[in-house]
Design a protein around this nucleic acid. Sequence first.
DNA 1: CAAAATTAATCAAACGATTGATTGATAATA
DNA 2: TATTATCAATCAATCGTTTGATTAATTTTG
Lengths: 219, 219
Amino acid sequence: MEKEKTDKPDKKDHILDVAERVFSDLGFDGASTRLISGEAGVNMAMLNYYFGSKEGLFLAIFERKISSFQTLLQNIGNDETMSSWDKLSTSIDKYVDRIIVNNCFQKLINREISMNKRWELTDKITEILMVNVKEIRKILDEGIKNGSFFADIDCEMVIATIFGTKNYILNTPQLSSLILGYDVRDEKLMEEKLKPRIKTYMKRLLKAYLMTDNDHIKQ
Amino acid sequence: MEKEKTDKPDKKDHILDVAERVFSDLGFDGASTRLISGEAGVNMAMLNYYFGSKEGLFLAIFERKISSFQTLLQNIGNDETMSSWDKLSTSIDKYVDRIIVNNCFQKLINREISMNKRWELTDKITEILMVNVKEIRKILDEGIKNGSFFADIDCEMVIATIFGTKNYILNTPQLSSLILGYDVRDEKLMEEKLKPRIKTYMKRLLKAYLMTDNDHIKQ
DNA sequence: CAAAATTAATCAAACGATTGATTGATAATA
DNA sequence: TATTATCAATCAATCGTTTGATTAATTTTG
């Protein structure tokens, strides 16, 4: 009634957009179907009509994102023209660009995977995230094999650092805003200051660990 | 009736122990007072009798932990006999030892601080966590000033890495168990394998970033 | 010290409110 | 007309909380 153009094809998408934000703000149990439908401007019964149940709506949010996640880092690892370091560097760039866009969905993922219930969903999330993990792992393993990276590095912990550092900043915005000195929730600041900062830092950090001879310690 | 010794003084503590675990497993909204009281083996009304409300119980869990957190890293930064690196290294050791013990409480903190509600509690959590953040920051700043660490390091991001890497492993046990190759929820494995591994890795990672001359890059 | 009075602790039962879900009627669309 | 979409109203279930009664523990009193 309010919209004048086609609002049919993206009505379900609109509900999913709203639900994604509300769920990420309040959690699955904290977000009521009444609130979601209210914020989305649709009748409450529409949620069950479209998605069957509250859990169905929740799952639909994840289903919608799966495909885009699976192709995030693809083909970088298979590029024969790039050095191992360039592959890792490019992966970090793409990853940082990506996850900041999907900010509230990432919060959703991390909160859900830390829960001891809804195991089915946890398994699915784990499966999705493992795709990117394996891609990074492949690059690190290759770098070790061809001598680009040290042989005695802790690959798995490096992965934890890459994903963990980013998650820490995005999942605790109130704390990290205090630490970093500016509001990491501000979209403009995030784009202009936070993203390049994370990229620069992560590359220097990893380069120092993976490629710098530790015999040359400063003091 | 069952216990033969004094079970009076730790009855509230017992409820807090159970509530801490249930909340960390199911979240604040997902954990019902009926379930908590049931698991604790007390009447439901006891929760309100002791803690006033469900939120009061929730807050009591945090209140109980505050003091132990505030003293975690104290006095390390003020030790004149230690080098900046030794201070940082010791802090990491103590921090890793600590947070793994308080595993499920950490999950509780990270889930709650990522929510966009219960601002009062979020503020309190932020305040608690900032104590440790500032302590680490002090060590890093001092290290820069006395030339132990490079002057152009990104202190705030280093903090995000220290806390983020650890949180990533502990908050996503299902995923990180898959990555690391063993069950990080297993107490014995955590003590014998995970803790020393995190310590060793974090120290080498940070040493490389903070203290290694980047002009000597391997290739 | 013992009886009485007072306070604290515990419980089953029920409260009103809210939850997710469903209904049957109505409107829109094809 | 047949199908789909939308709605207000309502469902049973569960939520956190409160109540009033009962027991246990403690304190006061004679």
